[in-house]
Amino acid sequence: MAYHSRHVEQTPSPVLVIELIAYLAIGALSGVLAGLFGVGGGAVIVPALILLFGALGGIGGDWLAHLAVGTSLATIIGTGAASTLAHHRRGGVRWDIVRPLAPGIVIGALAGAALAGWIPSLWLQRIFAVFLAYVGVRLLMTSTKAVSAPHPLPGHAGLAATGGGIGLLSSLVGIGGGTLTVPFLSSCGIGMRQAVGTSAACGLPIAVAGALGFVLVGWGRSGLPDWSSGFVYWPAVLAMLLASIPTAPLGARLAHSLPVPLLKRLFGVLLLLIAARLAFS
């Protein structure tokens, strides 16, 4: 496998140690928040990496935002697999829904990665800021949102088309799709437990296809760091996986002892502030 050039010293420098600690902290935070709020790790990982890469001297150069999105998707492969297995063991995955959604999801995720390759880094960052603002507003409105009558699930063609839209948007901004898939399934009358489990299972093909797409689209681009494959930076992926997988259960446990509605509002405000920071930086 070919890698791009970024000088790596034999003795780790203080900067590299700080960088590793930062990746571990991002992974741990994303794991806790995913378990606590049900918000996918990408909503935390992408903005954190954009800000960190910039602070470290612009890792990724002109492709900084692309590197953050591709790296997030590769990380979600590991967390998504662990989450899917856990939900499957508890009977929380509706595979009869996942199967017709999956083809559209894969095609949409590949298309999202291809589209991202044509978008300048600053505008990809701003697109993510808009998505982050959407998530923040949803968190703020969770407790006041009126409950509407459920709609019937569409047929296989409708599910494939829906999967295509979810895959495209999720891949474009580097998320596992939970913020899109769960509301869709809930609006179709699927119980929250199965909606979350089914969404986790859908996040795996999004992450695999999206990460593969970002590898291919980013292959050979100049200015990318060593140990990257296209727009996926493996040191960050491995460090964040190491920290995020064990911390997600901690977040789930905290959800039973902390005032989650209040925390959701505070987290929503934080996401809106981060969105503004990314949009106008």
Score class of each variant (00 low, 15 high):
L271M: 15
L24T: 07
A276T: 09
S72Q: 12
L273S: 02
A109C: 13
V135M: 10
A28P: 03
L85I: 01
S229D: 00
T247Y: 09
V8P: 00
W227A: 06
V137A: 14
L270F: 15
G108C: 10
G176R: 03
P261S: 11
V135W: 03
A276V: 08
F267E: 13
V232R: 06
S222N: 08
S229Q: 11
A74E: 09
Y233I: 10
V15E: 12
C202V: 14
G218F: 07
G61V: 05
I18S: 10
L263T: 05
I175L: 12
V15C: 00
P154G: 08
Y233R: 04
A239G: 07
L241S: 01
S186C: 03
H4E: 09
I26G: 02
G70C: 02
G167H: 02
F184G: 06
V260A: 11
S148L: 15
L273M: 11
S83R: 10
T79R: 12
G223R: 05
T142D: 12
A157T: 04
W227F: 05
G230Y: 05
L52W: 11
P152I: 13
G136W: 06
G117K: 11
E9R: 11
Q194I: 05
F267G: 03
C188W: 08
Y233H: 14
P14T: 12
G197V: 03
A275F: 06
A2M: 03
A133C: 06
S281V: 09
V182T: 13
C202R: 05
R94E: 15
L169E: 06
M192R: 11
H7L: 11
G163E: 07
S186D: 09
I59L: 10
A25V: 14
I245W: 04
P225F: 02
I77R: 00
Y134Q: 08
A22L: 01
A236P: 00
G167T: 04
L185I: 04
V147I: 14
I127F: 06
S143V: 10
Y3R: 09
V69A: 12
D62T: 00
L272T: 00
T162A: 15
A82W: 09
R265F: 00
G42K: 10
